[in-house]
Deep mutational scan, measured.
Amino acid sequence: NQESVVAAQLIPINTALTLVMMTTRVVSPTGIPAEDIPRLISMQVNQVVPMGTTLMPDMVKGYA
């Protein structure tokens, strides 16, 4: 089963992602794949992401 990127903390809107903000977990439905974490660093979220929420492609500016 593929791991997806999950918020390790509350991420406010327009925050640039850092490694410490993200963790990985096997979730359903699947979100952004864990191997894309290096690509996500410094990208901004376009909404508030509560802790434990799976990051979906449409939540990250410039990802999709």
Score class of each variant (00 low, 15 high):
M43K: 14
I37Y: 04
V26M: 08
S28H: 07
T54D: 01
V49C: 03
M21G: 02
T53R: 13
M21H: 13
T18E: 10
R25W: 07
T18S: 06
T15K: 06
A64V: 14
S28E: 15
L55K: 00
V48F: 11
I37T: 05
G31D: 00
V6N: 01
I37A: 09
A8T: 10
I32C: 03
A34N: 06
I37H: 03
Q9T: 15
D58Y: 11
V26S: 06
P50D: 09
M59T: 03
N46G: 06
L17R: 00
I37M: 15
S42H: 09
V49D: 00
P12A: 12
T24A: 13
I13A: 08
I37W: 04
M22N: 00
T30W: 13
M22D: 01
V5Y: 02
L10N: 12
Y63I: 07
V5W: 02
A7V: 03
N14S: 11
L17C: 01
V26P: 11
I11G: 00
I41S: 04
A64R: 02
S28A: 14
E35L: 09
G62L: 10
G52W: 13
T23D: 12
V49G: 00
G52E: 06
K61L: 14
V20C: 04
P50Q: 15
A64W: 05
K61E: 12
M59D: 03
M21I: 03
Y63M: 07
V6Q: 04
I41W: 03
T53N: 10
E3S: 09
A8Q: 08
I13S: 09
P12Y: 06
D36K: 07
R39M: 07
Q44T: 11
A34L: 05
L55Y: 01
M51W: 11
P29A: 07
M59N: 04
K61T: 15
R25Q: 15
T30Q: 09
Q2G: 13
L10K: 08
I13M: 13
V48K: 09
V60A: 01
V26G: 15
V5D: 00
V60D: 01
Q44P: 09
S42N: 13
A7W: 02
E35R: 13
D58T: 14
M43D: 04
R25D: 06
K61A: 13
A16Q: 12
V26E: 08
P57M: 06
I11V: 06
E3D: 07
V5G: 01
V5M: 02
M43G: 08
E35T: 15
G62S: 11
V27F: 02
M56T: 11
N46E: 07
A7F: 02
V60M: 06
Y63G: 03
L40K: 00
I41C: 03
G52A: 05
L40R: 00
T53L: 09
N1D: 04
P12E: 07
I11L: 09
M59V: 07
S4E: 00
R39Q: 09
Q2C: 03
I37P: 00
A16M: 15
L55F: 13
T23C: 03
N46F: 04
V60K: 01
P12D: 11
I32G: 00
V60E: 01
D36T: 12
I11T: 01
A34K: 08
T23L: 10
V27I: 11
V5A: 07
S4G: 04
N1P: 07
Y63R: 02
M59P: 01
E35S: 14
V20Y: 13
P29Q: 12
V26Y: 09
I11K: 02
S28K: 12
A34E: 04
D58C: 05
L10Q: 13
A7Y: 01
Q47C: 04
R39D: 06
T30A: 14
M22F: 09
M22P: 00
Q9A: 10
P29T: 07
L19G: 08
K61D: 14
A64E: 14
P29S: 09
V27R: 15
A16H: 08
V6G: 01
A16P: 08
S42C: 04
I41M: 14
P50K: 14
S4W: 04
I37C: 03
E3C: 03
S42E: 08
A34W: 05
T24V: 08
A34C: 03
T54L: 07
I11S: 00
T54W: 02
A8V: 07
A64D: 14
V49R: 02
L19P: 15
T15Q: 08
M56A: 09
P57D: 06
G31F: 02
M43C: 03
M21W: 04
V6E: 04
V45A: 05
N14C: 03
I11R: 01
T54I: 07
